[in-house]
Each structure stands twice: as C-alpha cells, then as structure tokens.
Write a protein that binds this DNA or RNA. Sequence first.
DNA 1: TGACGTCGAAACGCAACCGTTGCGTCGTCG
DNA 2: CGACGACGCAACGGTTGCGTTTCGACGTCA
Lengths: 193, 193
Amino acid sequence: MLRGDITAAIRNAVMNELAEVGYGRLSIEAVARRAGVGKTAVYRRWSNKLEMVLEIVSGVAERSVPMPDTGSFATDLQLTMFIVSKALQHRIASQIIPDLMAEAARNPKIAETLHRALRTHQTAVGETIVGQAVARGELPEGTDPGIAVDLMIGPLYWHLAVTRTPIDEDYLEKMANAVTAALKAAPAGPPAP
Amino acid sequence: MLRGDITAAIRNAVMNELAEVGYGRLSIEAVARRAGVGKTAVYRRWSNKLEMVLEIVSGVAERSVPMPDTGSFATDLQLTMFIVSKALQHRIASQIIPDLMAEAARNPKIAETLHRALRTHQTAVGETIVGQAVARGELPEGTDPGIAVDLMIGPLYWHLAVTRTPIDEDYLEKMANAVTAALKAAPAGPPAP
DNA sequence: TGACGTCGAAACGCAACCGTTGCGTCGTCG
DNA sequence: CGACGACGCAACGGTTGCGTTTCGACGTCA
C-alpha cells in the first residue's frame, strides 16, 4: 500500500516547486528531491508531470471560498472582495495562479482544470450574492452575475499582478464602493437613442 | 556591422517562441532554429536569455495605446476599453502577457520591465481621461485614476484569462456602463457612521 | 517467520540545451 | 581586389531531465 505521508510530502513539494519555478520548469526529479523521496515513488502514483499537477492542483482548489450572507449586498460584496484579495495575496496562490493561467493558454487540459477551479465556484458565489440582493431589492432586476464577478475580482487581480504590492484597506474600500455603485446603476444598455 | 534583417528575424522568432512555449521553456537554440539563424548570431547580440527577452519585449511594448479625447467620459471610456480588449485578445499578446506576469512574480527584472510597459502608460491614460472628465464636471472631484484604471482593465483581463472566449459587444457595453456608474458615484468612503 | 510490497538510491540510455569554439563562405567597404 | 567581419554550421564538454530498471532495506500482515 502507498504510504500516505509520502503522498502528502510529494503533494506539498509539487505546490512549492510550482510556486518557485512554474509549471514549465517543474521537473519530477526536483519534486522528488524536494520531497525527500525517490523518483520511483512519484512515478508509482502518477505517470506524467501534467497528470500529477492537474490532480494535485484541482485537489487543493476544491477548498471553497465561504458563501457570504450578511443580509446586505454592500457588506456581502466587501467581505467577498476582502477574502478574495487575501487569497490572491497568499504566498503560494499568488505565484501559481498566474503561472497556470499562462500555461492554460497553451494547454487545454490545464485550461479546463483552472476554469473549473476558478470559474465554477465564482459563478456560484456571484449568482448567490446577486440573487439575494435582487430579491431584497438592493439591485435592479436582471443584474448580470457574470459582470458582477468580473467587476469584483478583475480589478483586484489586475492590480496585484501588475503592481505586486499589497492591497491596502483604503483601496479595498474604495473599490468595493465603486463596484456597488456600478451594479446598482441600470443594468440595461446605454441611454435609449 | 550586425545585419538588421537578421536581428529582425530573431526578434520575431523570440516573440513567437515566447507565445508558444513561454519564457520558462524558451531556449536560445529554438529561437535560432526558428529564425533560421546560427546560435552565434544570437549570442553576438545578447549575452543572456533574460537580457534578450527584456530588450525585445520592452521594445515592442513601447508602441503606445492612443489617448482618447472624444469630449465625453462615457465615450472615452468605452473607446479605451474597446481598444484594450482588442489588444488583450491579440494572438501574441494574449499568450505573452500572462506568461510574463507569472514570470515577473519570480524575477524582479522582468517585473520591472513589465511594470514599466503596462502600468506607466496606463496611468497616463487614466489620469488624462479622468482629469478631463473631472474638469468637465462629469466625474466628482477627487476621483482616483488608479481605481479607474483597475476598474477598466481588470475585469476585461480577468474575464479573458479565465474564460478564454472572445469578448462580445454586449459584454463590453454592459461593462463600460457599469464602470461609468462606478466612477460617477461618490469617490469618498462608505456612508458616514 | 516468511512473503509481499513499497521504500530510497543509483544507474541506465536518450534527448535537449547550455555557452563556446573553429571552420569555410559570402557580402561589403575602401 | 583585398581585407574584414558577420554569417551558417557543426562540434565541443557539461548539465539537466526523462522514464525505466535493478538493488537491498524495511514494514506489515498472516
């Protein structure tokens, strides 16, 4: 039987190696070395670098972000953005996510895995928050949850990716207010012609 | 003297190779092969993979995005977002930008180059558009151009990176309206306690 | 106690790439 | 026309990683 602690050591090594050198440069030799394990142990569990990374990453990604329900849209949104900004600033995540995104542009299997890991859950959270807010009358009927998710996460991600500096409270607050205002405005097209 | 057409062939090969395999896997041998050139020719121009890529990429990045001035903030913004979305969907750019972003998380020199290439010009455009709008009274005094830029670009980038599908006109319109609304709302903090 | 299966370590042949060097060719300038 | 320099090509020794195989050492269960 495969020893569980060894599997755990490998998983851990993969995540760290992925963060340090990226998928492109990740080698099974380095993973084994880092885990203090023989290559044999790795190949006994997975047959590929791709298969290994996908299995491990999607395993980690399944830990969901909590679903906020504070009773007020503004607070739900602020809370979610706070959690997301923390997650995006996590030492490992902040390296792995952009890396896998880049790799996803070349490798359909990575794209699919990443898409599942990120989009599926995001969509659920977005639809819930927006749905509740619409039911409460805080947001107009027909508000697009997809737009909402992109508005919530996109600026945070872009800012972090480009500036590489921590997001301060003030920024987060301004951004949350802006997004709230954006969604409270009419969801329809431009002013009628 | 170094022959210009060969330099151009190498530059071109680097961009394409970068798009196909990424910085991590880019090899000088492959670049030379692709350019139909000896390795010698490459090493005569640059001494490093890093040096080579930085020089070439920052050269390309200097082609600026035009500065819109249509007389209306909503139109300026819509136009800018249209241009940015087109740029982000460009075959080469859509591969290289995420890749270099991921690499920037590991390599300070790449981070600096990318930061200069992206942020500097964005900031200028943002400040101009917002400044004009404030002067016209379309946006409140004290609107933060940094927030504006992140709101304009972030959602587009995130959406494209995660879904990998083209951005349609409807999405762009909705998003532009949302961002306009976001910025027209009070720039100050949350409702006074 | 004995059989079984995983373990780490080491080595295998193979391939790719590193950065450098030497060679003979070709184009250009003076 | 002659010299110079950039060119391509090929080969250098060295490194790294692949995926596989063999080995002896443990640990576990019966």
